[in-house]
Design a protein around this nucleic acid. Structure first.
Lengths: 165, 165
DNA sequence: CTAAACAATTGACTTCATCAACTATTGAGG
DNA sequence: CCTCAATAGTTGATGAAGTCAATTGTTTAG
């Protein structure tokens, strides 16, 4: 447990950068996206540090937890999963091997295209996923301690950011 | 590049869960922290998916990028780094071995306690760190496309969330 | 029907992670 | 001084996750 004081180094003054271009007033409004993003990134990393531990609560590796989470939509082709994980297809083979060995997922040959294998969560996989999602939805202290106004605003902003387009 | 449509599964209606406990009104205001957090988590994961690729732009592994980022404060004991990365100390040995081999960091024996070795960024490590930080500060599309009002609000909320208590 | 494209796997290899065992150093008491 | 526990770092064995190159089947386009 390291202190948070060190992680603010990412927010160091960028005041020296003299891009006094348009709208370079007192508080450098041109940096607004960067300011917001840097702070958000800070919080992301603070939280991501214990994602492995969180996954371990369910005896999952971080990646397996990610897969279980994404696999709720129903059957998913291996290649789609590889694409989604931004990793090589060969990596997914071993990943699914291990998850299948643990009874979390099943490979099913596709009817339409016999090359592809569709991944489905087993019954036990679905059960695990529900517990996992509930756990993931627990807001960390930093978020939970915000005011209702801030939470509402944050929720709405995130909705707009994630809105498709 | 997979579509975002699938990742909204995390936001599925939790309406069926009948925890009609206290303050279970129309829009379930009791879930406000959870709502905000779940959306934030969504965005986090959408972005974290390409962190490895981002690190690779600097020929760093994801963990190495994390270390370079954290190592700006100055000398840091190996054990402190292990603690910060929430990983075993033996892991840090190999990690630092590789980074030292690439001339990014140096081990320096501590004067006070000859057991500990302090890590310092080399000159080239510092230079890399600056480029990395600049790259990390670039807001992703989802954030950059928000309105100025939203960005200001987001920045302020994040400041309050990260404020040390 | 042949050839290109694609889905998944395999094998060789690297990095990150763990644990257990070991070395060296520090620090506390007898 | 001497022993003993605790600490910092390394080493070795092992496994998960990542890459790339090559292979096997299966579609699909000419």
């Amino acid at each position: 447990m390291r202190d948070m004081s060190g992680s603010s180094e990412n927010l160091e003054r960028r005041g020296k950068s003299p891009h006094s271009g348009p709208e370079a007033r007192g508080d450098e409004p041109g940096d607004l996206p960067k300011q917001a993003w840097t702070l958000l990134f800070e919080l992301m990393h603070a939280h991501m540090r214990n994602f492995p531990a969180l996954a371990a609560e369910f005896e999952l590796s971080p990646v397996q937890a990610h897969v279980v989470r994404q696999l709720g939509e129903g059957p998913l082709a291996m290649s789609t999963l590889a694409n989604y994980l931004s990793c090589d297809a060969s990596n997914v083979t071993g990943l699914v091997d291990r998850m299948e060995a643990r009874g979390l997922v099943e490979r099913r040959s596709s009817e339409q295209d016999r090359r592809v294998k569709m991944l489905v969560l087993t019954e036990s996989g679905v059960a695990l996923r529900e517990r996992l999602l509930a756990r993931l939805a627990e807001p960390p202290e930093l978020i939970a301690s915000l005011s209702d106004d801030d939470l509402r605003a944050l929720r709405d902003i995130m909705r707009r950011a994630l809105r498709p387009q």
